[in-house]
Design a protein around this nucleic acid. Structure first.
Lengths: 356, 356
DNA sequence: CTGAAAGCGCTTACAG
DNA sequence: CTGAAAGCGCTTACAG
């Protein structure tokens, strides 16, 4: 057995008695060789156990066939689900997906984004969770080839895939109102963020429809983390009037709220209804099962990847904005307020006489 | 402004009046230049806005500084948590982590593993969820540079990071026995897998300690998926004797069981106690809160990454096997069997007279 | 210490 | 159609 030197294109060419050019073209299917020649090359490849070197290809082709997935933390089920869908989609096109946890730090986001300039990444799916002061926008505009997912980076010249945030806020709030709630709190992420703003618009619109108005004491902006949900609950409970329901604009916030209600011995949904936003895996098994606005997480990842791939192929423009639909998933964390006679009950009375 | 041609090392060298060699060495910190020269280079870099091309470096250096994370599906919280910890660790050393969802298909696992041979990946963290017929073992031995995580690939010459499976099975079963259970079912993944076997050993050992013996009718092997847990429950409930408790060797199985109990109107834990294995995020919020053997998921990812990094650096050998500890997390999904007087109750009676 | 030159292993415009 | 040769943009052994 010969020395264990790495087999290259050249070796194959020599063994098959053709030029490296021919082998390269054949391997990449960019040529139709006479059957006899093709077979000679193939057999040489098999015999030598040749494997094209990806690094050399990358340099020569000016591409690495790897896309980045930049997010706060892949450890969170919501992001992980998006990453999974994105991976599935990019893999179909022969790309790989590299994940980067920014932990919501701008410097890390910038570092990861810069890998596009390096030529280490062909492009990236980008998710952030804080308000941008323009830094992110500039970085994205500078390196290009990124699509912004789920949360906006205002001013960035990049395709965006969002959820229909306003509709989400709207239908969730309508549901609460239909259940008879009047004192509804809004617990959200950072005030300046697009998701917060849009969901808040939906919230306000639904209140308006019912002739209600937003009570500033019942609105809490924070960050998209569990602890922020717990704090919001505590703040609300210290306040002058307790809400009978809370619309949390993230499951993580809802979970924080649920945790805090337990500590405070508040019964959900009897004393407090809670709606989440995202509908992550297994939210139906919580106690109580979480009613939530479902974002089509899979669709978000899949379409984000698709658009990024199209962008790289030049068949998509940087001004596309897609909205994936939302849907309200009814579960046990919402009930009529204990002190109120909700419309549902009124209807029952009207329709069926004595309720039993 | 000059043409938008990509700035290279050469350009910087020319602008600074030094050789490309000097620039390369300076950039990589492999040289101490006279302050004046260094400054000239640095300023040229800034002025030209030079960014070293990663693809060229990769080819020249024979490394891509990217590690693979090959798993069934990053969308599952358990794997996502491991990936997150691994990413954090490899990022410290300037590596990236690319995730690959095998969906538990051997052909995809092989495809991803082959990226190491390609030179596309410097190495990989590998997790599988099916019994290997030798294919995986051969592939791993052929490409090297992989560390096997959580589940064994027998015969592979690769470092392994496992959980103390046997201890996990043991302490979980002991707990059930201490609560008064005698008819305990064992619901697990594939029969031939190391995790299943080792956890089963612990299970059997604990039964043995209590003078009990394994009842084959109460042992269900399947796959590590939710649906498999549901099926196991149904099978158990069709059987001649119902267990009063189930030890599931994965949270996903426990969740499947929980789902099935709801459909069957079986109350947990009153009519059936359930213990899971993994302790994924938010398992404490389930209804009932899941008692589970906690694997140190973070530790698994972190140490796996560490060992892989060491392996690449040549400071770790392929025969290391690390075991991360397990811990039983007591929560609400376990209670004494309703028909039995458990030791806990006996103790109470003995110690405090009339229980109220 | 410093730099000219070869080399990493492909792809592809270009000439025959 | 086919292949010799240049090029991708770095790193690094080697000679001065």
């Amino acid at each position: 057995m010969p020395g264990r030197r790495k087999i290259t294109l050249k070796d194959v060419a020599a063994a098959a008695g053709v030029s490296p050019t021919a082998v390269s073209r054949h391997v990449n299917g960019r040529i139709d060789l006479p059957a006899e020649t093709a077979e000679r090359i193939d057999s040489a490849i098999r015999r030598l156990n040749y494997r094209p070197n990806a690094r050399a290809r990358h340099l020569a082709m000016g591409s690495t066939r790897t896309l980045g997935f930049i997010t706060t933390d892949i450890g969170y089920p919501f992001f992980a689900a998006i990453a999974s869908a994105a991976e599935e989609e990019v893999a179909k096109s022969g790309f790989s997906l590299a994940v980067f946890n920014s932990r919501n730090h701008v410097d890390r986001e910038l570092l990861f984004l810069s890998k596009i300039e390096d030529g280490q990444l062909d492009g990236a799916l980008f998710m952030t969770n804080h308000v941008d002061d323009g830094t992110l926008r500039d970085a994205i505009n500078h390196c290009g080839k990124v699509v912004v997912l789920d949360e906006d980076v205002p001013g960035a010249k990049a395709p965006r895939i969002f959820v229909d945030n306003e509709a989400g806020g709207l239908i969730a709030t309508r549901h609460l109102i239909a259940q008879g709630h009047r004192r509804i709190a809004f617990v959200s992420g950072p005030e300046g963020m697009t998701s917060s703003c849009e969901r808040f618009s939906g919230f306000r619109a639904a209140l308006g429809e019912a002739g209600l108005v937003v009570d500033p004491d019942l609105v809490c902006f924070g960050v998209y983390e569990e602890a922020s949900g717990s704090e919001a609950f505590q703040q609300l409970w210290r306040g002058p009037i307790h809400p009978t329901a809370i619309l949390a604009t993230a499951d993580l916030l809802a979970i924080g709220i649920l945790r805090a209600t337990r500590a405070a011995k508040i019964k959900t949904p009897r004393e407090l209804s809670v709606i989440g936003f995202d509908d992550m895996l297994h939210m139906d098994l919580l106690d109580p099962p979480l009613t939530a606005v479902r974002q089509s997480i899979h669709e978000l990842g899949r379409r984000g990847a698709r658009v990024l791939l199209d962008l790289l192929a030049g068949t998509a423009d940087t001004d596309v904005i897609e909205r994936v639909p939302v849907e309200l998933i009814l579960r046990g964390s919402v009930a009529p307020p204990k002190s109120a006679v909700g419309p549902a009950r009124l209807v029952k009375l009207a329709a069926g006489g004595e309720p039993r």
